[in-house]
């Protein structure tokens, strides 16, 4: 059987999502056996011009260079996978939308003129995204089962249960009862409630569940 040609790329972001693929230490070699990694800036060349089956894209579009890379890669791949919260929802870099530029411009580097930034946006506002692996960082089990599915020609199913499901299964006390603002009930799970297990509120990195809530102001 022909191996799937896969590329990992990162645009503006912390590269933590690509790292969480590498953190799959125990099964990383098995994964590499199943697929052909054609590009991965961490461990291999960039190969921007080759054709891909799947591209795992990390980070969000924050300047025109990002946008150029993204559009070029989208043209070269069959499927585009948004890897991690920045690519999926914008995450921390997109907080910039909530403030004006003059509020933070003085905090930037001295050579800020060299940065030709545009409004930061997740990748699906520029290109079609076929799959999403959410999370900041994404759960390594989820990455593994995603790769396991695509090599067996199975369409991966997004996990849509709220964080509460896993949090209750881990027998945690409810943070909302302790008057902590936890977004667990409305946030997509799959993270094994890692934050709430340790007493931290869920801050919604995996985006909203698709359970049909109405936003109330």
């Amino acid at each position: 059987m022909k191996k799937l040609k896969i590329g990992f790329y990162g645009i503006t972001g912390c590269a933590g999502c690509q790292l969480s693929v590498i953190f799959e230490e125990d099964e990383l070699l098995d994964i590499i056996n199943l697929i052909e990694i054609q590009a991965w800036p961490f461990i291999k060349e960039l190969n921007y011009d080759k054709k891909f089956d799947y591209i795992f894209m990390e980070g969000l579009v924050a300047d025109n260079e990002d946008k150029g890379i993204l559009l070029k890669l989208r043209a070269n791949t069959r499927f585009m996978v948004a890897l991690g919260a920045c690519a999926h929802t914008g995450c921390i870099p997109a907080y910039r939308h909530f403030t004006l530029k003059e509020n933070y411009a003085h905090l930037l580097y001295e050579k800020k003129e060299n940065i030709k930034d545009i409004d930061p946006n997740p990748i699906d506002s520029f290109v079609k995204v076929d799959y999403i692996i959410p999370g900041c960082p994404p759960d390594k089990n989820e990455i593994r089962s995603f790769i396991k599915d695509i090599v067996r020609d199975i369409i991966p199913k997004p996990y849509n249960n709220p964080v509460c499901v896993e949090c209750k299964r881990n027998n945690n006390s409810c943070l909302l009862d302790n008057k902590k603002p936890c977004l667990g009930p409305i946030t997509r799970g799959g993270c094994n409630s890692v934050c709430t297990n340790n007493g931290l509120e869920c801050w919604g990195c995996r985006g909203p569940t698709q359970q049909g809530h109405k936003m109330q102001s």
Binding site: N161, C164, V165, K168, R169, P185, T209, Q211
Partner: peptide
């Protein structure tokens, strides 16, 4: 209701 399913889990 937030459809969080805490009720059924507990």
């Amino acid at each position: 209701c937030l459809s969080c399913s805490a009720c059924t889990e507990m």
